[in-house]
Simulated scan of single mutants.
Amino acid sequence: MSLLSLTPPQIHSHAHFSPTPFPMSILRRFNLNPTNHRLRHRLATLSAAVRQDTTVWTPAPLSEIEPAAESLFHVSIDVSDSPDLATSHTRAGQYLQLKVGDSPKPSFLAIASPPKLAIKLGVFEFLVKSVVGSTAEALCGLKKGDVVELSPVMGNGFDISRIDPPEKFGTVLVFATGSGISPIRSLIESGFDAGKRSDVRLFYGARNLKRMAYQERFEDWESSGVKIVPVLSQADDSWTGESGFVQAAYTRAKELSNPSSTGAVLCGQKQMTEVRYYCYHLSFLTT
Rank of each mutant, 00 (worst) to 15 (best):
G195N: 10
V231H: 12
I184H: 06
S13Y: 01
L96T: 06
E274Q: 14
R217H: 14
L127V: 01
E149P: 00
V200R: 01
L46M: 14
T287W: 06
I77C: 03
A264I: 09
L98V: 13
A112F: 00
K116P: 00
W239G: 06
L85G: 04
P104F: 04
L285T: 15
P183M: 07
V148W: 02
P59S: 07
W57C: 08
A68R: 01
T240N: 15
R211H: 15
L142M: 11
S13F: 02
L6N: 10
P166G: 12
V131A: 09
D146W: 05
K144I: 14
R211I: 00
K144S: 05
Q94L: 08
E242C: 13
A206K: 07
E66T: 15
T273P: 01
Y95R: 02
F158V: 09
A60N: 07
F30W: 14
L187W: 07
S76H: 02
H89M: 08
Q94A: 09
D164T: 06
I228W: 01
R28H: 11
G170S: 13
G180T: 05
Q247N: 15
L85F: 03
I188E: 02
T45A: 14
I26L: 14
S63C: 15
G180M: 09
S76D: 04
V200Y: 02
A86N: 05
A136C: 12
S76K: 11
F284C: 09
I184N: 05
S190F: 06
M1E: 04
R28V: 09
A264R: 02
H281G: 12
P259N: 11
V200A: 05
S283P: 04
E137L: 06
D102S: 05
S223Y: 04
L96F: 11
T87H: 12
S233N: 14
E255K: 15
V131N: 09
S198M: 08
V172N: 02
S5C: 12
L256P: 01
G133S: 10
I181G: 10
K116L: 07
A264C: 11
S5D: 14
A136K: 03
I26Y: 05
S190E: 15
R201Q: 12
P67S: 13
S233Y: 14
P61W: 05
D236M: 04
V265E: 07
F203S: 07
F158T: 09
Y214V: 03
P152I: 00
R40F: 03
D220G: 11
K144N: 07
F245N: 10
A44C: 08
I228N: 00
L266A: 06
S63V: 00
E216K: 13
F73E: 01
D159I: 10
T273H: 14
A248F: 13
S257K: 15
R217V: 02
V75Q: 01
H281T: 13
S238N: 15
C267Q: 05
Q234T: 06
V265R: 00
T240L: 10
A138V: 03
T55Q: 15
F126Q: 00
E222S: 15
K105I: 08
G268H: 08
Q247M: 06
K168N: 07
T20I: 11
V128Y: 00
D236L: 09
L109F: 02
A206R: 08
D193G: 10
